[in-house]
C-alpha cells in the first residue's frame, strides 16, 4: 500500500509541475533535413557559448516543419521552422488562421545540388539537356517527339561513355526534388527543344507539365530516404549516378566522383559566384510572437546569421553551406526583428 501511495503522490507532483510551471526554457525547432546539420552545428555552438540551454532541433521535412510552426502561438508549439524551400502562400494562410501573423524569414545561405557517381567510375560532364534526354518520358529525336529510346549515356550524348542509364534522384517529398525539377529537368526540357514540341503537341499547361514527366522503365529511381541511402545504392550499383547535397558530397569525397554541370565543377566558390547552375537558398522561419518569451531566441537567431557562424569562414561554410553575399542585410533584418511581407 505504501508503494501505491508513493506512486500516486509522485504522479500528482509531476502532473502539478506539468500544468503549473509551464515555462519552456529551451528553443524548439523543426523542419528540413537539409538544414538540420547546419542547425545542429549552430545549436551546439550556441549551447557552449551562451548561458542558454542548447536548442532542440527536430527534422521531419521542410513542409512538416512549416506546418508545425503554423500550429499556433504558445509554448507547446515550435519557435523556428527550418526549410530548404521558400514558404508557400498556403502555409502563410494556415499560420494566419491559427494566430501566427508575424513570421520572420531568414535566408541563411545557399546549398548546391551535385551529381556524383562511384569514385572508380567514369568521368561525366552533364548539361541539363543531357539529364532531360536521359530521364524524361518523351524526348525530341530527329525533330519528332518520341517515347524515350535512350539506353546508355552515349545515346544521350556521344561525348559521354556508353554506360547504362541509371539515376537515383530524390523522391517527391524532398525539397531537393523541387530544385532538380526546376533547374535541371525543366531547364533541360527548354534547352533540348522538347518544351516547344510538347507545348505544340499538348497545349501550354499540359506541355509544361509533361516536361517534368519521367520515364517509368526503371532508369530513374526515386529515393525517399536520405543521401546515405543514395550512397549505399551507388555502392551496390556502380553504374548509377546519384543526386546529393554539396555538403554530403564534401564529406564523402573519397567515395564519390562528382560530375560537372555546364562545364562547372560544383564547389562553394562556383555556387557563390552563380556559375554552377543547380543551387537553392536555405531558410528558417521564426515565430515573432515567441521573441522575448522563449529565453535566448533572439540571441540564437542573431548568432545563427552572425559572421562567426554563417560567414564565409565560419563552421557552416566549412560544412558546405554557400555563404550568402547579402548576409549583412539579413543580420540587420534579424536584429530589428522585421517580419516578412507578402510573398512576391
Amino acid at each position: 500500500m505504501k508503494t501505491v501511495k508513493f506512486t500516486v503522490s509522485a504522479l500528482a507532483i509531476i502532473a502539478a509541475s506539468a500544468s503549473g510551471a509551464f515555462a519552456r526554457d529551451q528553443i524548439q525547432t523543426a523542419g528540413s533535413s537539409t538544414v538540420l546539420p547546419y542547425a545542429t552545428i549552430v545549436a551546439e555552438a550556441f549551447g557552449e557559448n551562451f548561458d542558454f540551454p542548447t536548442p532542440v532541433v527536430e527534422s521531419g521535412g521542410s513542409g512538416a516543419g512549416r506546418k508545425k510552426l503554423c500550429e499556433g502561438v504558445g509554448e507547446n508549439t515550435i519557435d523556428i521552422a527550418n526549410s530548404s524551400s521558400r514558404i508557400k502562400q498556403s502555409d502563410i494562410d494556415l499560420c494566419a488562421q491559427n494566430g501566427v501573423t508575424e513570421i520572420i524569414e531568414v535566408r541563411i545561405g545557399y546549398d548546391g545540388i551535385v551529381f556524383a557517381s562511384d569514385i572508380n567510375g567514369a568521368e561525366f560532364a552533364f548539361t541539363p539537356a543531357d539529364w532531360y534526354n536521359a530521364l524524361a518520358a518523351e524526348v525530341v529525336k530527329d525533330g519528332a517527339l518520341v517515347a524515350n529510346p535512350n539506353k546508355t549515356w552515349a545515346d544521350v550524348n556521344p561525348a559521354m561513355p556508353a554506360q547504362d542509364l541509371l539515376a537515383f534522384i530524390p523522391g517527391t517529398k524532398h525539397g531537393t526534388r523541387e530544385v532538380f525539377d526546376e533547374k535541371v529537368l525543366h531547364a533541360g526540357c527548354k534547352a533540348s527543344g522538347a518544351e516547344e514540341a510538347l507545348i505544340a503537341a499538348k497545349g501550354e499547361e499540359d506541355g509544361k507539365k509533361a516536361c517534368l514527366a519521367l520515364r517509368t522503365d526503371g532508369v530513374s529511381v526515386d529515393i525517399d530516404g536520405d543521401y546515405t541511402e543514395t550512397l549505399s545504392r551507388i555502392d551496390a550499383n556502380k553504374n548509377a549516378i546519384g543526386v546529393f547535397g554539396l555538403s554530403f558530397y564534401q564529406n564523402n569525397t573519397d567515395k564519390l566522383r562528382v560530375a560537372t554541370m555546364d562545364g562547372v565543377v560544383p564547389s562553394v566558390e562556383s555556387i557563390a559566384s552563380g556559375d554552377y547552375p543547380v543551387s537553392r537558398p536555405l531558410y528558417f522561419y521564426v515565430k515573432k510572437a515567441h521573441l522575448g518569451v522563449i529565453p535566448g531566441l533572439q540571441e540564437y537567431i542573431d548568432f545563427f546569421v552572425s559572421d562567426d557562424m554563417a560567414g564565409p569562414n565560419g563552421p557552416l561554410a566549412a560544412y558546405g553551406l554557400v555563404s550568402d553575399p547579402e548576409l549583412a542585410a539579413t543580420q540587420a533584418m534579424v536584429a530589428a526583428g522585421t517580419p516578412m511581407g507578402p510573398l512576391k
Binding site: A30, E44, T54, V56, E58
Partner: peptide, 12 residues
Amino acid sequence: LLLIGMVAFVRD
C-alpha cells in the same frame, strides 16, 4: 516517438 518530437537533436 517520431510524432511527439523526440526524434531530435538534443544535447542537454
